[in-house]
């Protein structure tokens, strides 16, 4: 049995191992023909050409691990698989982000591409995003199962880095084999079937997100573009500070107003009785108002 056969076995093993994913992982399948480009979405610290197949923003991988992974992923040029560890929260939803990255990075001749995206937030989440062109529902379903199977491998790993490595190492050759198998049967762009028409057992296996033709008009709105550029944490902090200052000023104004209008009482003193009068001693304050 040669190496090619082992790969095929690995592929089918992966395919049949597809099980429901854990809550912190998700598989997304994208069709470049149906999912519109994000336009000028400046998610966009995203380079037009990736420096490498492994982009590790928080630098969690050791140089050795990174280069090993890089080497194994570089071999899969026909169906490139990228591993991106993003520092902080994603500026847009993962599907938009993945769409933007894969759309930019996937060469025209590549039929499929994959991205393993890890969002390095306090609650880390792993996304396996698989993308292709003119995907039939069957192909989408297969890709989805492939992604889920890759994620399943991560469950057995002791930590997240190992899980990412295992996922990437399994997904890259599996996607390559998938691409080679797919070449055997020509693409059928006009025969797409909505996911709801899939057989019930297959539907039950589909746990990830499946893009249907009717739902493919999802575009990046101007709001998404703006939201991507805004630093919401800073805005929230500034809003709180501004609110506090305004409240303080209002409170001071109210206190000042209360103080200025509070009733005043003169001290009571011994009256200076004079001219035997009980209440008042008289005064000489008088003017004549005749002009």
């Amino acid at each position: 049995m040669n190496a090619q056969n082992y790969s095929i076995l690995a592929f089918f093993a992966l395919l049949f191992m597809s099980t429901p994913k854990d809550v912190n992982a998700e598989t997304i399948v994208l069709d470049f023909e149906l999912t519109p480009p994000a336009g000028k979405l400046s998610v966009t610290d995203v380079p037009r050409n990736p420096r490498s197949f492994v982009i590790d923003e928080p630098a969690r991988f050791s140089p050795g691990d990174k280069s090993d992974l890089e080497q194994s992923l570089t071999k899969m040029q026909d169906a490139p698989t990228y591993l991106v560890i993003k520092k902080g929260k994603l500026p847009v939803p993962a599907d938009l982000y993945g769409n933007e990255l894969l759309r930019r990075w996937t060469a025209n001749q590549a039929r499929f591409s994959a991205l393993i995206l890890c969002v390095n937030t306090p609650l880390p989440k792993i996304f396996v995003i698989l993308a292709g062109r003119n995907l039939t529902p069957a192909t989408r379903s297969e890709l989805l199962k492939l992604g889920n199977a890759a994620l399943h491998l991560a469950d057995d790993q002791p930590d997240q880095l190992e899980a990412l490595k295992a996922t990437a190492a399994a997904l890259a050759p599996a996607l390559k084999i998938f691409t080679e198998l797919y070449r055997g049967s020509p693409p059928q762009p006009n025969l797409t079937v909505p996911a709801r028409n899939l057989s019930p057992p297959l539907q039950a296996q589909v746990k990830g997100r499946l893009y249907e033709r009717s739902n493919t008009k999802k575009t990046t709105s101007q709001w998404d573009l703006l939201a991507a550029k805004l630093d919401w944490n800073l805005i929230r902090i500034l809003s709180i500070i501004t609110g506090c200052i305004i409240s303080l000023v209002i409170a001071l104004v109210i206190l000042r107003r209360i103080r200025l209008h509070r009733p005043l009482y003169f001290p009571i003193h011994q009256p200076r009785h004079r001219f035997s009068a009980p209440y008042a001693g008289g005064s000489n304050a008088q003017i004549k108002y005749d002009s």
Partner: peptide, 28 residues
């Protein structure tokens, strides 16, 4: 055509004749 003012004993320490007259002249 005159205006005059008087205050009780409780106020005459504070509103003396000078103050009352001054105010009357200011309002003249």
């Amino acid at each position: 055509e005159t205006v005059s003012t008087s205050v009780g004993y409780g106020l005459d320490c504070f509103l003396d004749d000078v103050t009352l007259s001054k105010a009357l002249h200011e309002a003249k």
